[in-house]
Simulated assay, not measured.
Amino acid sequence: MINNLSDFPIFSGLPEDAIQDIMPLLKERQFKKNHILMFENDESDEVYLIRSGMLKVYRLHDGKEIVLSIAMPGEIIGEVEALSNDLYRISSVEALEPVTTWQIRKQDFLEIAETYPSVFRKAYMILVERIRILNRLVRYLTFYDVRTKVANLIIDFYFNFGRQTDNGYKIEMKINQTLLANMLGVTRESVSKILTEFQDEKIIDIREKYFYIVDMKKLESLCEETEEIQTLRKWYKL
């Protein structure tokens, strides 16, 4: 749980008196798993700072869902619409687990950004990071077969949520096949088939929805030449 406002990259570096001035503007909000904080094209102007829990950012088309990113503690959502003076939400956001946030009104956020230009600069940097992540998603959707897509996404998850254990490289996030499928633009059945193959080949093991990479070298070999700079797999580096 993040309790210090300065731990949010967009507000990092602000003087302590500024932090103290901002705190009264924040309202704590808690959301249950599967709660939808915002719908694409809805008119709303709240900005959220994620203190705990994870959310998915997604879009729907003809009943099909494509997950654009996973939002994690320390991130801000809704600031792009606020800074662009656009009331219409760019995408939908849903809690993947219980989530705690600080909510701030659009007008208050704009006044903070105008008072402290570093907030504008940090918002721009965050936007660039999101574009980079979307570029990777486009590569996955466009250029790779399903096996390569799944292998890459598993390694991406490890770079962001993984740690080495006695039983292999564990991804510290429960992942279901539907989430993987919706991040890759393929069917759940296709993902299930590939994951079964990976387990049969002793590349991964799945226990209680936790993924363990048993043979990292083999998994990496399936991703050969798909990512020249491995550190770019980290979704947010701010």
Rank of each mutant, 00 (worst) to 15 (best):
I10M: 10
F11H: 05
E16T: 06
I19P: 06
L25S: 07
K27I: 06
R29D: 05
H35A: 08
M38N: 00
D42L: 03
D45Q: 08
E46R: 11
S52Y: 01
M54R: 15
V57N: 13
L60P: 01
L60D: 12
H61R: 13
L68K: 09
S69A: 15
A71N: 06
I76W: 03
G78F: 04
E79K: 03
E79T: 04
S84C: 12
N85C: 10
Y88R: 14
Y88G: 00
R89D: 10
I90L: 13
S92I: 01
E97L: 01
T100E: 15
T101W: 02
I104A: 05
I104F: 00
R105Y: 09
K106T: 09
L110Q: 14
L110P: 11
L110H: 04
T115I: 05
Y116E: 09
P117D: 10
S118H: 12
F120N: 14
A123M: 10
Y124P: 00
I131S: 13
N135W: 00
N135L: 08
L137D: 08
V138F: 11
R139P: 02
Y144A: 05
A151V: 00
L153D: 09
I154S: 07
D156T: 07
D156E: 15
Y158N: 09
N160T: 02
R163P: 04
Q164N: 10
Q164H: 07
N167T: 02
N167R: 08
G168Q: 02
G168W: 01
Y169Q: 11
K170M: 07
M173A: 09
M173E: 10
K174Y: 02
I175R: 08
Q177S: 11
T178G: 04
V186S: 13
V186N: 12
R188H: 13
E189I: 10
S192H: 13
K193Y: 12
E197M: 14
I204V: 13
R207T: 11
Y210W: 07
F211I: 15
K218Q: 12
K218D: 03
L222P: 03
L222R: 08
E224F: 04
E225K: 09
T231E: 10
K234N: 03
W235C: 07
K237H: 05
L238K: 08
